[in-house]
Each structure stands twice: as C-alpha cells, then as structure tokens.
C-alpha cells in the first residue's frame, strides 16, 4: 500500500473521526487517558495484512519518539537517531532483547519484532530515556488521543478489545473486553486504579503533528 495514502486515511479518519469503532478510555477520575494502546483481536481473521510501512522509533532531544509505539507482529522497526549525540538503545524485555549503538549518520539496520509483548526501551547513556514498543498480533490497533478516544475501521465481527499502557495498574484481565462490531460501535473503559505517575517529562502527542492541536 502506499504509505502516504494510508497515512492520509488514518489522518482523515482521526481528524474526521472516521472509523466505525470507537474506544474510549477514562481513568478512575473519569479523565480521558491519552496514548493508551488499544488493539482488537479476532482469531477468525486469518491473513492479517501487515498494515504499515516500517515504523520508526526515533530519539529526539533525548527522548524516544514516539514514547509508545504499537506495531503488528513481524514488523520491522527502524531506529534512526535524530539527536546529534550518541544513544545506546537497548531492551531486555523478553519480547525483544537487543541493543543498538546509534550515532548520527550510523544507520542501524531495522529490527524485526516477531514476538508479541511489551518491549521496554532504555538508553544506556541517558537514564531518563524510556520508551515502549507494544507488539500486537492484529492489524487493528492504535492509541487513544487526547480525548481518550480511539477509532478504527474494522469489519464487523466479534473482537477482543485490549488496552495497554505502562501507567495502567489495572490487571490485564480487566482491560480485556469483547466487542461485537456491527457498524458503528463503541466501547469505553474506565480504569479502577490510579494511573502510575508519568515518568516522561512532558505529555507525548500521538503524532508528530500534535503541535497543531
């Protein structure tokens, strides 16, 4: 597929609030929770297309960008380094154990993420750098926006809707809901437990264009 098209579509859908499924996430104070990874799983969908192009986990101003990256299993992720300084990215998460020494100008090969799960990223040089790659086993995933809303176009079917966010303390079982999509559907999650404090210095936008909000 054409990257820009999909991107535009996604963009449109997000701006125009396109998509037939809406997932809302609220915290225990009924405040919208942003950047929550949402994915819908349906076993019946067999050949799951690899949706996107090679996503990027960049380091910009000594921060992982994006803070949370959700990818489909078997996606290759590229790790550029937009900072002028060296970063030594690593992860010891069972989903992917790797380390990359990233310099400006040293283009590392993209890495294939073939296991589902949370990959916690750190930089050996900078303790404050923290990022997540959430590998899911479905093409239908995304993150909630500033309003705590995530919408997506999915064929009608029964799906398992799951949430993940590093700050969510609620148990994984409570974050799984089933949803029968039929045309326009929505589901909302209200967290029970208080969100863990953010360890990131500032609120991360979903997109690079978050500045326009």
């Amino acid at each position: 597929m054409k990257k820009p098209l999909v991107g535009a579509m996604l963009l449109l859908s997000s701006i125009c609030q396109a998509g037939n499924v809406e997932v809302w996430v609220f915290d225990n104070n009924n405040k919208p929770v942003v950047n929550v990874a949402v994915h819908l799983n349906n076993q019946n969908i067999v050949s799951l297309p690899v949706v996107q192009d090679m996503p990027i986990m960049d380091q910009i101003k000594k921060q992982f960008s994006p803070h949370i990256l959700v990818v489909q299993k078997n996606t290759q992720i590229r790790f550029p380094n937009s900072d002028l300084i060296k970063h030594h990215v690593y992860s010891f998460s069972p989903a992917k154990v790797f380390q990359l020494k990233l310099y400006k100008g040293l283009n590392a090969d993209p890495l294939l993420f073939s296991k589902t799960g949370v990959v916690e990223l750190g930089c050996n040089v900078h303790d404050s750098m923290l990022g997540y790659i959430y590998v899911v086993d479905t093409p239908y995933f995304g993150k909630t926006d500033a309003n705590g809303r995530f919408s997506i176009e999915v064929p009608d079917a029964d799906y398992q809707v799951r949430l993940w966010h590093p700050q969510i303390q609620d148990g994984m079982d409570s974050l799984l809901k089933t949803l029968a999509v039929n045309g326009r559907s929505n589901i909302s999650f209200t967290l029970q437990q208080t969100l863990l404090p953010s360890s990131v210095l500032y609120e991360q936008d979903t997109e690079e264009f978050g500045d326009y909000e």
Partner: peptide
C-alpha cells in the same frame, strides 16, 4: 530497573 525511568522493577 533495566530502564531506569521505568516503573518496572526487573
């Protein structure tokens, strides 16, 4: 903590 700023204790 594998990643220092993480909440997670490894």
């Amino acid at each position: 903590r594998f990643v220092e700023t993480s909440q997670k204790i490894n």
